[in-house]
């Protein structure tokens, strides 16, 4: 998986600027839609750490997203976001640890089925027990924007703007963090595992531990995305944890391109835009979605970013050689 070139980052920064200025040029509805897309991008980006970087296809990832969102419901109302955001990440990571430890005893197809089953287990936990407030979901009160005793009161009218900027900031931080991570030895080890896990093991890597670390970190980031979803929508329901959402995350990654770290961001924007267009055009949204997915897997298997992959390829360091430098 590659990190975008300097030109690519400039383009991303321009796009971020355009999004940040949306309240000036777009309708309130579209500002809210952009927030939804940003949250979806966070979720897809966290999943990309597993799928794009390490080649681990998980179908249970939405469970950690949902747990991050439900953390906002479970914590007492009125807490500062500085407390609730890390709490969501920690709670999601705490769930990802045992699920990952068990699922990583398997590979490939088995890994996919196991993550799916454990993800559904967590879904049923919130769907069938009183823990999460029942199967229809609950409204949650948004965490307070408050830091070091300085409270930031948001008037109702400017709330979409504030949420948009907040989501944009969290997504940018997440992207920057992951871009930096891909340059570290850990990032190289993950790519090495995707290319050839047996060789990485022969080189002396405890590959299961590297994969578990990635699984837990991806879970924590999904928790962050879930937190921002709860904050944006002020509503949580068990569907947030369901495996259809995990599959949608995979779709965003494939839409945007498996090969690039920024792919999921493009993919999430395309996915949300597609859903919106489908709703405008027809009652049968799933028909449009299904046909588009079919077209993508049949015609465009490298995604939107893949269209430019030839130009970006030069920037990719040889992962196994770099990892092999480790004594």
């Amino acid at each position: 998986m590659i990190v975008a070139s300097r030109a690519g980052h400039a383009a991303l920064a321009l796009a971020a600027l355009a999004v940040a200025l949306m309240p000036l040029w777009a309708s309130g509805y579209h500002v809210q839609l952009a927030s939804t897309a940003l949250v979806a991008a966070m979720f897809a980006l966290s999943l990309q750490l597993l799928v794009g970087a390490a080649g681990m296809v998980s179908l249970g990832h939405a469970a950690f997203f949902g747990i991050g969102a439900y953390a906002v419901h479970l914590l007492p109302a009125g807490l500062s976001i500085l407390f609730t955001l890390p709490a969501s990440a920690l709670l999601a990571a705490a769930a990802a640890l045992p699920v990952g430890a068990l699922s990583l005893r398997t590979r490939g197809f088995f890994f996919l089925m196991t993550t799916l089953a454990f993800g559904q287990m967590l879904f049923f936990l919130f769907h069938d027990t009183p823990l999460g407030g029942g199967k229809d979901g609950v409204f949650v009160s948004r965490p307070a924007l408050e830091a070091f005793g300085f409270a930031f009161e948001v008037p109702r009218r400017s709330r979409p703007t504030v949420l948009l900027l907040l989501n944009l900031g969290v997504l940018a931080a997440m992207y920057a963090g992951l871009a930096a991570l891909m340059g570290t030895l850990f990032g190289h080890a993950l790519r090495g595992i995707r290319e050839n896990e047996d060789r990485m093991r022969a080189l002396g890597y405890d590959t299961r531990r590297v994969k578990l670390a990635a699984f837990v970190l991806a879970g924590a980031l999904a928790g962050v995305a879930g937190h921002m979803s709860a904050m944006t929508e002020a509503f949580v329901n068990p569907e947030l944890l369901g495996w259809h959402r995990s599959a949608e995350g995979l779709l965003m990654i494939l839409l945007g391109g498996l090969g690039a770290l920024h792919g999921p961001i493009l993919g999430a924007a395309a996915f949300v835009g597609l859903g919106e267009a489908a709703t405008l055009l027809t009652e049968r949204r799933r028909l449009v979605e299904g046909l588009v997915i079919l077209a993508v897997v049949l015609v465009l298997p490298r995604g939107l970013a893949g269209l430019r992959l030839g130009l970006l390829r030069r920037r990719e360091p040889a992962p196994v050689a770099a990892a092999a430098a480790e004594p």
């Binding site: 995979l250 299904g290 897997v297």
Partner: peptide, 22 residues
């Protein structure tokens, strides 16, 4: 799709679910 990656198979069959339900 026999020789394609798991991810492609997942999305192909996910698309089929949506189409069958529709």
């Amino acid at each position: 799709f026999y020789r394609r990656e798991h991810l492609d198979q997942v999305l192909l069959t996910f698309a089929l679910i949506l189409l069958f339900e529709e």
